[in-house]
Write a protein that binds this DNA or RNA. Structure first.
Lengths: 203, 203
DNA sequence: CGCTCACTAGAGCGATCTATCTAGTGAGTG
DNA sequence: CACTCACTAGATAGATCGCTCTAGTGAGCG
C-alpha cells in the first residue's frame, strides 16, 4: 500500500547507518527515496525523531533475521558463530567498510540526546541478546551462562565493527570472531564434561 | 600561552564524545569554551574538520594515558584488565552514561564521510592496541598472541560501551570485563604451562 | 456523479549551520 | 615611541536545517 513510506524507511536506514542521524538531512532522505517532501511529515508526524526511532526498530528487526539465518535451530552454534563473523567481514569489505551494524552509529549519537531513540536502540539490542541466548540454551548451556555469552559476543561484534570501519581492515572482525568462536566452543565443552561428571557421580 | 585554543579542544572533546561530531555546532563549542568565534578559525584554519581530527588525536592520547595508568609495567595484567573494566563502568554510571570511549561516536560517524578524521581515529585505535600489546608481551605472552588479545579486548570494550550506553546499564561492561579477564588469565596460564613443558622437554 | 480522504507536491518559514570578513586590542620588540 | 603580529570580537554571508502550510490529485464509495 504505502510504498512511499517503506522507501523512506529503507533509505533512511541506509543513510543513518553510514552517516549517522545528525549527519543525515531530511531533504537528503526524501530525495534519495524519491518521495515528496510532504509525505515524510504525513507518515511521520513526529518528525525526524519519530522516523529515527522507527528506522532503528525496523533495521534492528531485519538484522535480527540475518542473525537468525546463521543461528538456525539445531545447527552447531560454534560453526554458526564463526561463519557469522566471517560473513560480516565480507559484507564490510564489499561495501567499502560502510555496512556494519545498522544501529550502532545512531545508538552512540542519541544515547545522551534523545530518550525515545535510545530506548529503541536498547530494545533492539535486547532482542538480539534474547535471540542469541535462546540458541545457546538450545545448545545445552544454562540460561545464565547463555545470556552472558550472548552479551559478550554482541559486544565483541559491535566493537570489532567500530575498529574495522575506522581501520579499514577486517582484521579486528576476524580476531573477535575467532575469540568468540573459541569462547562458545569452550562453554559447550565445559558444559558437556560437567554433565558427564554429574551423570557419573549420580548414576 | 594559547589557553583559548586548549579550551576549544577540551570542550569539543567533551561535546563530540556525547553528541557526536555532526550533532555539535561550532557555535556551541565556542560558547561553552568561552572563546570568541573568530579564534576558532584563527587556530583551526581548516575549520571544523581540522578541529575534529585534532580533538580525536588529543582525546585519544589522553585516554591512552588512562589505560597506561591501569596497565602499569610490572603490574599483573589480569588484575589490571578486571580493574579497568570496573572503573569504566563506574565512570559511565557517574556521568549518567555519557562518558564512555572519547572517540567511538565520532569514529562511526566519520568512517565513511571524512578521510582525515577516519585516519585520526585509526591512528588512535592502533596506538591503544600497540600499548596494550606491549604490556601483554611484558607479561610473557608471544607478540602475535598479545596483539590478537589486545585487539579482542579493545573490541569488547568498545562494544560494551555501545550496549551499556544504549541500555543504561553497566551489565554489558561487567560481562565483557569478566570475559576479557578470563581470556587474559587463560592466555597467561597457557603460556606458563607451555614454557614449563618446553623446559622439561629441553632441559 | 459527488464526496471523502489518504496521499502527493513543493513553496516557504524561521532557525541554525559553517565559514569569511573587517576591525580592534594589547603584549612584545626595535 | 612606532611597529608588528598573534589574538580577540562579532557582524554577516550563503547554504542548509527541520518543519509547516496550502493546494492539488486520484482511488474508493454511497
Amino acid at each position: 500500500m504505502a510504498a512511499t513510506r517503506d522507501r523512506i524507511v529503507e533509505r533512511s536506514a541506509e543513510l543513518f547507518r553510514r552517516q549517522g542521524f545528525a549527519g543525515t538531512g531530511v531533504k537528503q532522505i526524501v530525495a534519495e527515496a524519491s518521495a515528496p517532501f510532504g509525505s515524510l511529515y504525513h507518515f511521520f508526524p513526529g518528525g525526524k525523531e519519530q522516523l529515527g526511532a522507527e528506522v532503528i526498530r525496523w533495521s534492528g528487526a531485519l538484522y535480527g533475521q540475518l542473525i537468525d539465518a546463521f543461528f538456525l535451530p539445531g545447527k552447531d552454534v560454534v560453526a554458526a558463530t564463526s561463519q557469522f563473523f566471517l560473513a560480516a567481514g565480507e559484507t564490510l569489505r564489499e561495501t567499502d567498510y560502510a555496512d556494519a551494524c545498522p544501529i550502532a552509529t545512531v545508538a552512540l549519537e542519541v544515547s545522551s540526546t534523545s530518550e525515545p531513540m535510545r530506548e529503541a536502540c536498547s530494545d533492539v539490542f535486547n532482542s538480539w541478546v534474547d535471540g542469541a541466548t535462546d540458541r545457546l540454551v538450545e545448545s545445552g548451556l544454562p540460561r545464565r551462562r547463555s545470556r552472558a555469552l550472548a552479551i559478550s559476543m554482541l559486544a565483541s561484534l559491535e566493537g570489532a565493527f567500530v575498529l574495522s570501519r575506522a581501520m579499514r581492515s577486517t582484521e579486528p572482525l576476524e580476531i573477535a570472531g575467532a575469540a568468540c568462536t573459541a569462547a562458545v566452543r569452550d562453554a559447550v565443552a565445559a558444559q558437556r564434561s560437567a554433565r558427564r561428571a554429574r551423570r557419573k557421580r549420580e548414576g
